[in-house]
Computed example of a mutant assay.
Amino acid sequence: MGQKVSTTAFARVGTDEPHHSRRKAILAKHPEIKELYGPDVRLLPMILAIVAVQLGLAVYSTQLEGWKWFFLCWSLGGTLTHWLSLGNHELSHNLCFKKTFYNELLGMVANCGQGLPSCISFKKYHLEHHYSQGVDIIDVDIPSDWEGRFFNTRPKKVFWVILQPLFYALRPLVVNPKPLSVMEAINGIVTFAFNAAFAFTFGFKAVMFNIAATLLGMGIHPVAGHFISEHYIFKEGQETYSYYGLLNLVTFNVGYHNEHHDFPRIPGFKLPMVRRIAPEFYDPLHSYDSWSGVIYDYIFRSDLGPYSRIKRENKKAA
């Protein structure tokens, strides 16, 4: 079955998440960072362009068979659809338009390129990840106890990485279920109506390309390394980690993750400026230059697994 993971429980802390205090300290020394706050409309043409390329790729893929179709779907399709997912991450913070509705509308356009409705549900849970980082039950970014117990060997961790899109979709419904909102229903209707029209025009295979690319791009894929790199404990005592490699170019700089949690009101385009302005706060922190290396280490290190996360007590549930 492979070597078992030595970590058998979540790391429990009684302290608050580190970002509020660091943000306060940084702003006291570098108040000019506040000038970076606010939406950046550059996100609009970027997302529209990525959707257009992805849809064009999906149409082209209908000419391919077998491994050629799969490889294009995993490689370029997975990169583009994941890029759209991280565009929706930006939109969940209202970082393109000032009005929430316009950000949500653009998120639905992004979902048309992915083939799956996700932007509204993602926002509902992702903001809680910021407000209540690591808090038991509320922060559904943290794996369930069952995941920690079951995916406890190297082969099982490989399957856990592959199945990440499944866990991201279903974990919130099990751990912290919330009623379906009107906007979520609209999100579903818009996405599936587009899928139907796209399939009618170009064939079902084109729609399956978008859906499969989205799922593959969230599994064992270089850009999906950010799921693990962001908050899994690779260095004792550190809760959030940044990545400063080239793949930030196709992920709206989500790798600048300490910077993002410190300043969620700053768009990804400007997060590198935060590090340049306040290097004394970020350079001493452990960071990465390879997301593929993060995935490899997560699978093969016996001290890492789904339990390698920091949890805080849910005071409301206590």
Rank of each mutant, 00 (worst) to 15 (best):
E236Q: 15
S242K: 01
M218K: 01
G305N: 10
F234C: 08
H261T: 09
I189G: 05
K311P: 00
K316E: 15
E230Y: 01
L27F: 04
K157W: 05
K311G: 02
G237L: 04
Q63I: 01
M108L: 14
L76Y: 00
A169L: 09
W74Q: 00
Q133V: 14
H89E: 06
R42E: 04
A224W: 00
Q164W: 04
F204N: 03
P279K: 06
K123W: 00
S75H: 00
H257I: 07
L116P: 04
V51C: 11
G2T: 04
L215V: 12
H257W: 01
G38I: 10
L86D: 15
N176H: 14
V135H: 06
L27T: 04
H257F: 08
S290D: 11
F281C: 14
D40W: 02
G115K: 05
P39V: 10
L173I: 00
K98Y: 10
I50W: 03
G237F: 02
T62G: 12
A213G: 07
Y60C: 13
P45L: 02
L127A: 08
H130M: 04
A169I: 02
L55T: 11
S85A: 07
P284C: 03
Y241N: 14
L285S: 11
K205C: 06
Y288Q: 14
A185W: 06
N314P: 14
E184N: 04
R301N: 14
P18C: 05
G77P: 04
I26F: 05
C73H: 02
S242T: 03
V161T: 06
L91Y: 13
P18R: 01
Q164V: 03
G77D: 04
W74T: 00
V250E: 05
R12L: 15
N248W: 06
V158P: 07
H126T: 02
L116M: 13
N88F: 02
I295Y: 01
G66I: 01
I233Y: 05
C73N: 15
I310P: 00
T79G: 02
K98M: 06
W74K: 00
L304K: 09
P172N: 09
Y288F: 15
I120N: 12
I189M: 08
A278V: 13
D289P: 00
M183W: 13
L55Y: 02
H286E: 12
E184L: 03
Y307T: 02
I137Q: 10
K316A: 15
